[in-house]
Design a binder for these strands. Structure first.
Lengths: 204, 204
DNA sequence: TGCATTTACTAAACAGTGTTTATTATATTC
DNA sequence: GAATATAATAAACACTGTTTAGTAAATGCA
């Protein structure tokens, strides 16, 4: 009976169709305007059909959130070629900030919005987040071993680095950087300068 | 004609009644569950009445957002007695983090949610934000003058400090600190340790 | 005081949201 | 070919923010 496999394949294809449509609408119009009805309209099915493939709206955006992590990880991995761990740390930070500034909606979904985290509560651990955090831990661990940065607890240092870059990007994404009263490109310059200063302070 | 003044007073009292009810519901049940209808129910008026006193829901939460800034500023001002600017900077940071951890809903409204910033767009500058940021600028300026911290551009340094503490608090408030897989109080300890490390790196 | 006008309020509706239920049409199995 | 299982949907439910049209009370003026 190959029918079962075909059905399974069709089910997966339908899930992909929904996710593709939802992703496209999300990046074009934002989270709020991406309603179940608008997705249904886009893929030319009834709204109720979507609930045959996803438990609720949160589950859809959890999948988009996971896809976004894959994209970020691809960017981060490009820095694997940098041998010096401190230089790699700097490059990772810049890649992270750049990703946030260039993909504010994805960043929001990954690190700010509540929606995808609801899914994680009723499921398991935050796999995507842990994986990305793992990158940072590995690099920082190498920096500490080679005595490139000031000595300190690995986790405390990692939280310090992540919190800082997240602070930069999230204040920008949620429009609090307006206090600088500067044009957008000048604000971005300040963000990168601030990261450079941070790195200099961390350096041994 | 004192009637005009009485009417003005009554209008202000009604606004206060709405804000008080909305604030109480917001702190008890969160933003989403604080609907116009639930506020109307609470103050025993019809939903439409609220629109005679506030343009929309965003305006209500903009006022709550401003009240929250007043509370934060009261906390921050307690550190004015600390003469040494670097010590004061440390105390301000701890006060900020503490405020965020103890008042996650207020913090969310002030520095994460989009709702109150919509109001600012159609109005003027982000007065509350600028005022709080001014505190930081003043203290950092004194630190630089007295050569207590590493030299650098004032604004770049300020963004560095603010982004970092905001990063700590916002990752906690939006439940991304779960990657540490620690009980809540241990996570909070890490946050404070991370801030201490940050300060040590900033120190000259 | 009596009437016209302004003010304060609300019931009902509008246009939307996420989600569920009962029903129908199609595909599969025996 | 008949019985069963699957896929899809129309319609409804319970909400949301907001607007409109209509009513009742307070005020201004003669």
């Amino acid at each position: 009976m190959a029918i079962k496999e075909r059905k399974e394949r069709e089910k997966q294809e339908m899930r992909n169709l929904i996710i593709e449509s939802a992703t496209q609408l999300f990046l074009k119009q934002g989270y709020d305007k991406t309603s179940i009805r608008s997705i249904a309209d886009d893929i030319e099915y009834s709204p109720a059909t979507i609930y045959l493939y996803f438990k609720d709206k949160d589950e859809i955006f959890f999948v988009i959130h996971e896809n976004a992590f894959e994209i970020l990880e691809k960017h981060l991995r490009k820095n694997d070629v940098i041998a010096d761990p401190f230089e790699r740390l700097g490059a990772l930070g810049k890649t992270y900030i750049e990703f946030g500034l260039e993909n504010p909606d994805y960043y929001d979904l990954m690190f700010i919005m509540r929606a995808p985290m609801e899914q994680i509560k009723n499921e398991e651990k935050w796999k995507s987040g842990e994986c990305a955090f793992g990158y940072l831990l590995t690099t920082l661990s190498a920096c500490l071993e080679e005595n490139k940065i000031r000595q300190g607890d690995l986790y405390v240092t990692a939280i310090q680095v992540w919190s800082f870059v997240h602070g930069l990007v999230s204040l920008y994404v949620r429009e609090r950087m307006c206090i600088l009263m500067m044009p957008d490109d000048a604000t971005r310059e300040i963000l990168y300068s601030s990261f450079d200063l941070f790195l200099a302070n961390l350096k041994k």
